[in-house]
Design a protein around this nucleic acid. Structure first.
Lengths: 252, 252
DNA sequence: CGCCAACTTGATGGCTGTCAAGTCAGGTGG
DNA sequence: CCACCTGACTTGACAGCCATCAAGTTGGCG
């Protein structure tokens, strides 16, 4: 595992930017704001940071001050148990927010690590709260984003608590596909940014089990797997696979 | 499973109430508000509903309009898969909020069921948003509550993804104990409101596994179990049990 | 008193974890 | 440009934890 050396401060090239020009407007905080409101958000979200692959955006325990919007790149978040076990709690891509977990205790509750060279917008939280007291649409949208995170987490609980290995992986692939689609990329072909071990941690499986499930999907013609490159060949087949184990005598 | 007959409207005895007199002030939304601010919250949260054991407070798919603060009683929330599998996503007790999942899509994303006769305070969400634009402390506290839910969910993911059956149950019991303590009840002795099957669903286990784990805890003198009555005899022992399976060669 | 849901306990099996060996791909240095 | 090296991945054999199936017990309630 890489982070053996003491982590220096993140190499942050600070750049001016503007939500009003961002092509992720529709996915991110600016959603639904008027021109004038957008301009006010711009004043707040005006600093971008570059995070290189493998570096931490923040670590569990650090004081919380800001949330981050992913401008480009790919992240994972994870939590650690005292004895060294860890659990990946999510993978985040462009347009999604990082750091919401820190509001609760004013300290970050998880680690956020870039899985590829990335850029994030820096959003001081107290200023966001101030602005969302003034702009109703911003307030409401922010609440929706937090709520969506809660709903997403419940979906992961379902996945971890009630699904078998292949169902979990199928759900994961379909979810990735859908999120890539929403960003204008191919829904059927993409590169995984994370290792089998990270996928396994997220899905509550060991890396060998993830690997075997991929192989089986390939045998059955559901996907074409070549290392990190994935082509989804049979979306319907993957969906079908997920709902086959509910009632006894439902096919298997 | 009971809900076979068509669910009539919840029998709701509507009662006037006031946050300013509520003995759950310190746990609930009013936390940190001044006298005057409290009075304004009172205007909003002025209706109480009674929900009888087994009844739904809301169902997945219903239009979202309000969140609910539990005044007394005990609830579970769960999500359903199309094929009939379900996953309990949480157990909620007095002072906790229900319905945050509905903000995202304006429809409830899960079911909320009373596990004993309960009372909830009804909080129209649009009015809460309005008030929290005007009262900074309320806004901030509400954000903290949502964030806390996210952090809690990540803890459950850790539990489901990285722990074994007995660790999960121990974690669950310690969590209940801590929450009862915060409400002024005994930390070592309480009654479970949920069945073994519901505990199992929450923990990603079958009811038989939950039962066996209880028996084993009893054999080892960690807890005294008599049906739904639980006495925790060795808190330290339960905690110890949780961190024994991390690194290889860590005791087991 | 009897019924039924909830719970406990035992026997068995299967999914996934563990351990191990081997393959592949990408990057580095000669 | 190629050999080497390393991390990531695949595949196989085996084992263990938990699910499944089944029978019996308990406790609450009408």
């Amino acid at each position: 595992m890489p982070p053996s050396k003491v982590s220096r401060d993140i190499s942050l090239a600070v750049i001016r930017t503007a939500c009003s020009n961002c092509n992720l407007r529709e996915l991110c905080l600016p959603f639904g704001l008027s021109e004038e409101e957008l301009a006010r958000l711009d004043e707040l979200v005006n600093v971008r940071k570059r995070i290189k692959r493998g570096e931490h955006l923040y670590r569990a325990g650090q004081a919380f001050e800001s949330i981050y919007a992913i401008r480009s790149g790919f992240f994972k978040t994870d939590v650690l148990l005292e004895d060294g076990r860890d659990q990946v709690t999510g993978f985040q891509m462009a347009g999604e927010l990082l750091g919401l977990d820190g509001i609760s205790t004013e300290r970050h509750a998880c680690n956020a690590v870039a899985l590829e060279d990335s850029e994030v917008c820096h959003i001081p939280f107290s200023r966001l709260e101030k602005l969302s007291r003034e702009i109703q649409a911003l307030q409401h949208h922010f609440h929706k984003v937090m709520s969506r995170e809660i709903v997403r987490d419940h979906g992961v609980m379902m996945l971890l608590g009630a699904m078998r290995a292949e169902e979990r992986l199928a759900t994961f692939l379909l979810n990735l596909s859908q999120r890539f689609t929403a960003r204008g990329f191919s829904h059927s072909e993409f590169n995984l940014r994370m290792t089998r071990e990270e996928i396994g941690s997220y899905l509550g499986l060991k890396l060998e089990t993830v690997s075997r499930a991929f192989s089986r999907f390939q045998e059955e013609g559901l996907v074409a797997v070549q290392q990190k490159h994935i082509r989804i060949l049979d979306t319907a087949g993957l969906k079908l696979l997920i709902n086959r184990h509910g009632y006894p005598g439902h096919g298997l």
